[in-house]
Design a protein around this nucleic acid. Structure first.
Lengths: 162, 162
DNA sequence: CAGTATCCCCATAGATACTG
DNA sequence: CAGTATCTATGGGGATACTG
């Protein structure tokens, strides 16, 4: 076995509980779910399984670039969290079906809000980035010019002294 | 400079655009936002700044365990995406205020949905995990027992042959 | 088919030291 | 105070080989 977030989960660190916010607590449930959905493959898996249940190899083919190892790991994590169910059919060759659980379905629905937000605001973000990058570039040029100015002065001083 | 997702962002990979889903596209806006809010510190920063604007050191003190480097990086990223604003007061000693932009505010509101979901379902998740762990442990014991049985048989065979 | 087991890389977090 | 610069270490994730 490779890992597993350990069993002693608990309800986050409970120091000054009432003063702190969900996002203040280290390793709380929110963080764990966030880490799960933010990892490279989980979200794609969830989205695909929301349409219909799929076999291992079907998922593997549909998710471009995923390795067997990573797909297995991702599915195990999702299964452990109760977001995805795994049914093994004792046939030859073996057949394993993965499906989204009701719980997983509600999570996917929730995530959609974030997707919608992103779609609605992506142009604002792009604009902000462009503006930021320009600003940074300008500052760098300024700094370079200043440095060049200092050098010029230094050379002048040397020339005069000679 | 250290990095910056490069400037050639674009609207994700545009292969078979209409067939694919948002979550199928590699490196699309959704992924970028997800990576941002899912990273270790961004969310805490956003949540704190949603209450009131804060100075660098205030943030540093309020966010337990964050290093200068990480806080700076986090703030720069958030600033670049237009989620956080940075105002430098030309005083001695210097004073820099960070605040959530309107855009950042709407993002925080959206994320709250995810937090709510997590709070509502954390017991289900915990139950699922416990069940999964028990299942895995049982399978392992089973496998161990089987292996032990095989060994016993093997020893018997050897004993009889002698 | 649906995995497990290994090895390896490299991107990023964290610690430390220095600066306008 | 509010950073930048540099180094190291951890682990996520890819490639490959093997198996029930």
């Amino acid at each position: 076995m490779e890992d597993g977030t350990s069993m002693s989960l608990g309800h986050c660190g409970d120091t000054d509980y009432d003063v702190l916010q969900w996002d203040q607590r280290e390793d709380c449930e929110v963080r764990q779910i966030l880490d799960r959905i933010a990892d490279k493959w989980s979200l794609q898996v969830i989205a695909l399984l929301d349409r219909r249940s799929l076999r291992f190899t079907e998922l593997r083919r549909m998710i471009d670039g995923v390795s067997q190892r990573m797909l297995t790991r991702t599915l195990r994590h999702l299964e452990r969290d109760g977001l995805v169910s795994r049914t093994v059919h004792a046939t030859v060759p073996p057949r394993v079906d993965y499906a989204l659980t009701p719980l997983g379905g509600t999570l996917h629905a929730t995530i959609r809000a974030l997707v919608t937000w992103t779609e609605e605001h992506q142009s604002e973000i792009a604009t902000a980035r462009a503006a930021y990058d320009v600003r940074v570039a300008a500052e760098q040029e300024e700094a370079a010019a200043e440095a060049a100015g200092r050098d010029a002065v230094a050379r002048l001083v040397l020339a005069v002294r000679r």
